[in-house]
Design a protein around this nucleic acid. Sequence first.
DNA 1: GTTGCCTATGCAACTCGTTGCATAGCAGGA
DNA 2: TCCTGCTATGCAACGAGTTGCATAGGCAAC
Lengths: 185, 185
Amino acid sequence: MALEHAILVSLLEQPGSGYELARRFDRSIGRFWTATHQQIYRVLRRMEADGWIAAEEVAQDGRPDKKVYSAADPGRAALSGWLREPVEPETVRHELAVKIRAAAFDDPAALISEVERHRESHAALLARYLAGEQRDFPAGSAPDARQELQHVVLRGGIEYERMTLAWLDDVLATLHRLGGRRPHH
Amino acid sequence: MALEHAILVSLLEQPGSGYELARRFDRSIGRFWTATHQQIYRVLRRMEADGWIAAEEVAQDGRPDKKVYSAADPGRAALSGWLREPVEPETVRHELAVKIRAAAFDDPAALISEVERHRESHAALLARYLAGEQRDFPAGSAPDARQELQHVVLRGGIEYERMTLAWLDDVLATLHRLGGRRPHH
DNA sequence: GTTGCCTATGCAACTCGTTGCATAGCAGGA
DNA sequence: TCCTGCTATGCAACGAGTTGCATAGGCAAC
């Protein structure tokens, strides 16, 4: 389980409440690790019980109170230990690939609009990444270690989206080519 | 849930027992959808109860008997319906990216050997993909629709591995560059 | 001749992750 | 005025997925 570690990293970068963490997981961190607010609250309680993080009640006016968490030393030590462990092989879940192979037993043309939707959403995400790169890592700046590492992760996202766009074009060309043929029945 | 659909596709391509499916999920299909034998057996029982697949007991000598499953019409219809539904956005789980950002709060150099291990395993997978492509889709052949679709999925795997290798080189260069600097404490 | 691996299926217990719902005050617009 | 939406946390129930173990015959190596 790496949700705990992803939360620790996020709290080290910036302390925050469960709600704030949930929003971060919808944005930057969510690009490589997703979580709902339910999961986050549950894991936060466990981590606090284990002493990995410390909570501070913060009263707000005009808004509900919140509990702001920050990483504690045992949490930092746990993260350090995890960093030195070999990571499990990633389990891939690529639903679109299943659909593409499934199309051989149905009408391949029925997939075209679905693939086009995916293409659009990946193009939009690439644009967001590129805008974020311009904003956070402008050319000529002198980044520190944290920024360098955040940047190399972002570059990975950018290259992933570029690769995916090119592949989806390949998929679309293949589906169009097969459009005339009868499906296998 | 797409495990049912991945199993249906696999059984349409070739009928087989739970055990055989588990091995396929360790090989080709497992590249874009993973499953343990436990999951597979449980889902097979549910699918048989729902009439999606049909089972036939096959006695073997020198080996335990097996139940060979094949896709039935209701299963084929369910697959067809699923193909026409929009797919949920993929939830990405990229543990290495979490580690890279975590390295900002520890020693970045400690990650180098881990990244190198990943690089090797991605290089080995790319080599396997390329060998499989040569074997199954030799230049000059006239593939049918099923092979075309399998090939485009494989090309996606190949491009993904190439992209990942290039990115891991970028990560390694970044980690080496940061090697001299003190971690943030 | 015992140890370990392969085929083949399955139970039990657990953790992970999602979905629906609840509360509760405040802000802004129709 | 009512409706929608945001901040903030949480319960309950379910489904997905993993891990450990069990059985049971055959095969090959040491």
